[in-house]
């Protein structure tokens, strides 16, 4: 899995500083990363309703995403144009910065019944990779508390072939759709959207 060990270690080092805002990284990296917050929210926590949070995102996932936007293998509205403005080194620096930020999960409106059903479906179909109810960001973005419209866009991109989906995930999503239909997928979105800071 690429440079996972090294990246992992750096993430842990970053996470240890996560209670300190802005000042944890060097000034140039702070500045580079502060440019993102106009869209993604201060320190990477989005107030939504649509643009995803990037705070607390696994650094490797951040780097992979930016590179996929840059080379056009992942579809997007603005990110494909934005990613082309950054070098590998800058992307790595921003990845460390955002991995070290504490994600603030802002409340979203959701259907409690759907969310309850989504919780069960998550445990059956998603928990194996998106651990801890989608709270963890090991190989993917944080799902718990992520903006719901963004999650719908992402699922649509995976299903429509606008974004590469790995085999394991494809199989799980297909199973879920076969057993529960589109409402099952929507239920999972509501489960993630139901998780917010108290």
């Amino acid at each position: 899995m690429k440079t996972k060990t090294l990246m992992g270690a750096m993430v842990i080092a970053g996470a240890a500083l996560s209670t300190v805002p802005v000042l944890a990284a060097d000034p140039a990296t702070n500045l580079l990363s502060a440019m993102c917050s106009g869209c993604h929210g201060t320190d990477g926590s989005s107030r939504g309703p649509t643009i995803p949070s990037i705070a607390g995102m696994n650094a490797e996932y951040f780097v992979d995403s930016m590179k996929a936007f840059r080379d056009g293998t992942r579809a997007a509205t603005v990110m494909t144009r934005i990613a082309k403005g950054y070098t590998d080194q800058e992307i790595e620096a921003m990845a460390q910065y955002f991995a070290a930020q504490k994600l603030v999960r802002f409340p979203q409106s959701f259907d409690p019944k759907l969310a309850e059903r989504g919780k069960r479906l998550h445990e059956n179909y998603c928990e194996k990779c998106h651990e801890d109810g989608g709270m963890k960001s090991d190989e993917a973005g944080v799902l718990a508390g992520q903006m719901m419209p963004y999650l719908r866009f992402s699922l649509d991109d995976f299903l429509q072939g606008r974004r590469e989906i790995d085999k394991k995930m494809k199989a799980k999503v297909d199973d879920l759709l076969a057993a529960e239909g589109k409402e099952g997928l929507e239920a999972v979105v509501h489960f993630y959207g139901s998780q917010h800071d108290k």
Partner: peptide
């Protein structure tokens, strides 16, 4: 040549941008 889906998303993202930048 952006698709209608992408133009719809730009509108959805615009509303989020407003919330996030004004908070920033």
């Amino acid at each position: 040549d952006a698709s209608e889906e992408m133009l719809r998303r730009e509108m959805a993202y615009a509303q989020s941008w407003f919330n996030n930048i004004t908070d920033d």
